[in-house]
Amino acid sequence: MRRAGGYGVITSPDGVEEHDTFTCAHCNRVVVVPVRADPSDIGGMCYQCMRLVCPDCVSQGGCTPFERKLELMERRADALRSYGE
C-alpha cells in the first residue's frame, strides 16, 4: 500500500512473508493489509481526521482520534493524582 503505517515480516523455514500494516487513528490498533486486499475488508477512512481506521472503529462510527483519548486518559490520571490517590 502507499505510505504504509508499518511493516511486518514472518520468517520461517518455508521462507519470508512480508506485509504492510497501518495503525488505526482512533484506537491505535495495528491492522494487517494483505496483498490486493479489498479496501472494505481492512477498515476505512475517517473523513473527519482524514486518517485510516480499523474495521471495529468503522462500525462504531464517530471520530475520536487517539490523541484525544490519550489526553482524556492522562487528564483523569492527573486529577486522581491531585486528589492524593
Binding site: 508499518g6 511493516y7 511486518g8 514472518i10 520468517t11
Partner: peptide, 16 residues
C-alpha cells in the same frame, strides 16, 4: 517462525 513488526513514524503504539 519469528515475527517482526516495525512502525513508520506516526504509527507507533503509544503509551500514555
Amino acid at each position: 517462525a519469528t515475527y517482526r513488526w516495525v512502525a513508520s513514524p506516526g504509527n507507533e503504539f503509544v503509551i500514555p
